[in-house]
Design a protein around this nucleic acid. Structure first.
Lengths: 151, 151
DNA sequence: GAACAGTTTCAGGTAGCCTGAATTCTAAGT
DNA sequence: ACTTAGAATTCAGGCTACCTGAAACTGTTC
């Protein structure tokens, strides 16, 4: 428990530090291709869970439904997403990535991988795998708290 | 390299997800004690590096000097920090945590540790140590890119 | 002594979150 | 069948934590 004695050793603090450190280069990279961070994460989540609603996407992205609606509307306008009425639930709209959305994912992939490689440059391949595994575990704990989300 | 094939496996993406998931409860926790996230991180960095300048603090926190100046001014006003002229460099001001700042760190510690424990609830003690170690490695890579920062 | 680099400060801008509230639909209970 | 509760969507408005640009001052270097 010694690692927890000093704030420097808190997970929360380190997560925030790394996120802050990555944020600017990441935003620049995405902006060069014409998308924002929320757009990128929405594409990533939707690729994994096609056909979910905007509200469900919000839960999986840890933002409010109203916040996600803004991102989704922008993506619908720019043609990255399309939506269909859910036949079973009159009011719900199901979201899908368009061909253009898929192309966008392809267009940013190399640069994202490059930045990712920088981030992991002090880690062995095994370290990197463990880090990803542990981060997934943390995220899943948080998802479970969000409620109504199948992990 | 299979882990890198899908965006879901990118470090950047997972870091962002976990940060988003922790952000709201963390902000609420801090707000209940009367401080913001930037204030908390500034206190944490300054506890580790007392007597640095606001610009140096900005570099270590991955924000611009002007952004950090806002945070620091608020903290000076509320008495969490004090500053002294650097005798060697006429224009530079060195920052120190006040007794009140130390008390604030104490006041939030338990709640931060509780939230940290939730985050790590799916990890063994050994996993948690590894995760912290790897996150530090990522942060140090980013710090090195920031320039003029001793790690 | 001139150019350069770093810190601080002032001014202004914006993206990405948030809450509140109205609408519409489904599901559940009585 | 009727009512109530719960969830998704949409409209309106607000704020924080970032950002860039530019000026003033100081220490360093050539």
């Amino acid at each position: 428990m010694n690692a927890m004695r000093e704030p420097e050793g808190y997970l929360i603090y380190l997560i925030k530090q790394v996120e802050l450190g990555v944020r600017r280069p990441f935003e620049e990279l995405l902006a060069a291709k014409g998308i924002s961070t929320p757009t990128y994460t929405a594409l990533t989540v939707l690729r994994r869970w096609p056909g979910i609603t905007s509200s469900e996407l919000a839960r999986r992205s840890f933002v409010r439904a109203q916040t996600m609606a803004e991102t989704v509307n922008a993506m619908l306008d720019s043609g990255l997403l399309r939506r269909e009425k859910d036949p079973a639930h009159g009011r719900q709209m199901l979201l899908y990535i368009t061909a253009e959305g898929d192309r966008m994912i392809d267009r940013v992939r190399d640069d994202v991988q490059d930045l990712d490689a920088v981030l992991a440059s002090a880690l062995s391949e095994e370290d990197r795998r463990q880090l990803i595994h542990h981060l997934r575990a943390c995220r899943d704990v948080l998802l479970a708290r969000e409620g109504r989300v199948r992990v």
